[in-house]
Design a protein around this nucleic acid. Sequence first.
DNA 1: GACAATTTTGTTTTT
DNA 2: CAAAATTGTC
Length: 725
Amino acid sequence: MIEKSKHQGSTSRRRQRAASILADLNPVQREAVEQAYGPLLILAGAGSGKTRVLTYKVAYLVRELGISPWKILAVTFTNKAAQEMKQRIERLVGKVSLNMWLGTFHSICARILRREAGSAGVDPHFVIYDTADQLTVVKKALEKLEISKEQFSPKMVLAKISWAKNSLITHQALARQSGNFFEQNIARIYGEYQKGLRESNALDFDDLLMKTATLSDSNPSVLEKYQNRFEFILVDEYQDTNHAQYVLVKQLASQHRNLCVVGDDDQSIYGWRGADIRNILDFERDYPEAKVIRLEQNYRSTKRILAAASAVVEKNLGRKGKTLWTEKAKGEKLTLFECADERNEAARIVETILEEKGRNGRSLNDFVILYRTNAQSRALEDGLRRRGIPYIIVGGLRFYERKEVKDILAYLKLICNPVDSVNLSRIINIPRRGIGGVTLGKVEEFATEAGISPLHTLMQVEEIEGLSAAMRKRLKDFAELIASFTKAKGTTPADRLATELVEKISYIQELRQEGTLEAQIREDNVRELLSGITEFVERSPDNSLDAFLAEVSLLTDIDRWDQSRDAVTLMTLHCAKGLEFPVVFIAGLEEGLFPLSRSIESLDELEEERRLFYVGVTRAKEKVLLSFAYNRHRYNSTMYGVESRFIEEIPSSLLQRVGIKQQWETLMTGELPGFEVGSWVIHPKWGRGKITNKTGFGENTKLVVYFDTVGEKRLLVRYAELEPG
DNA sequence: GACAATTTTGTTTTT
DNA sequence: CAAAATTGTC
């Protein structure tokens, strides 16, 4: 009795909450949420609340239709998006939502493969190799096959292999279908590469997708299990799915056909990674009974921003076409800075940030600076540092790709997966143990001949010929070190294991001895990694090292990004997908840079660049500031910039130009903060000095500076490369 | 085997 | 111009 009334109570409460759920949505969004059964394509324009629709849809399924979360699969583009959605859904439906599968394609696939390892023909403890690891394997394969890497550059080979995998083509199939010498060789390298991965018990990113998508070929029953289970499937960012992902979704949804995909063909920006825009364009052909709903009301940007973005993307031919509208204010015009060079560009962006901060009371995390290539961040960073503005770079040299982080992770991976030869060779001499390339070569040779893993070989080091007794001891010590941790990992939580390891190999101690600023940063990164592991252990039900490694390989920089920190964010346009900021800068709008020179010749690629620009502009809520530079230093030479065609594609009524002349005038007459009498500056040659006198304004400011090294010097700010310090 | 000196190479975006 | 790869020296 008690139970029954409890049940009823919760049902009516549910109703009530469900009603309020739908009340939060506009009529079109509501329609999208209520359309639960059958294939559904939601064409969601930028800022139209698609994440909202997805979360509410899950809530609706669970609360209103009584679907068990266990039967729902939702796929997002980044782990960050998954995490956010998870939290929002949990708030709507409670803890039961934890039973649903929600993650990126790659993490969902990894999960399936570990569960179905037997059927998939992989070891459940497989490691995931990143691009650097992949390159090592390719190079080894080239060596083995005696193919010169001049003719077959590892990077190019890897791109071909990746393309093949995303098209679900095995190396055997590639060999069969390729006619010429070149392709035959690619197929051979591909085969050898796969062998290398297998021996190390490793999968690459593409394997995760491919192996899952082809799982049913040999094991239809495994597929059936998941087909039956996932009654409802939701896919976000569908415009960026590749062929393997497309096939996977199609297979999983074929049983119940309750497939809801959300996307925006205008935001398809991953063609170079194998994403096939046709997947979204042809959805209605694949699912003739599909319903299509367009979300066209934008809740993010001002009218002018939206108009500018739409005007540009309308130049594209291959698109479904939709008209975004907003109830927001007209807003300010977009601004375009014509800059002298990238230094000037940075200075003006920084200037604007300070001005906006002062006048409109914005905080630093209201700003994002977007650019096409990571290399551009350098000049921008310099500009920000010059004025002492804190910033966060997302991407670039990614956290998990840093040497110190990779070193520690390599140890941890080897501990969990002793056959991993790539990670073994990475760390066998870190810290220095006097084990060099020659010795490692002998070990690997022996391992290959004996058909066992290199680490295993080290256990029977006596049998390897041509090694000194001292060397044998070193090798054995190393093997025992790894073995002792492997033994401990069953009973010790991941964070303690990692901390003990770092201690044991004196990694931080070594860094301290270097005493450089760089070593300090490295130490910080190692500590950050360790605290990341601790955080994982506290949050995750499975605190083993295996569990941590399974997750960490699929994390990216954007997943670690802390938006609440008071700092300006810098990232590539690709990285900015799905985010929003009050003020958006897009730097480097020059022909050849954005659009990138390689893309200019092909119409498809040019259209993708244009979509990328569209993505950039539509990140902005209130203000968009574009900039280009007449001169840009690109490795050794200076490039003369011509403004990007995308600028001309914005109606001139929406765009306010700030010419180079105006800029210089303000620079010439404005006070330069940080250069006051009594403050300290740093000179590249003479080091730190104190300003004792100052005359003039702006770039013409003359300073008298006293340096400990050379005494008093008279300097013109324009020429001397001084930094406040 | 370690380290310094020299030569070569390379820039698109990322799960 | 840097970072990476290669060669040279101890």
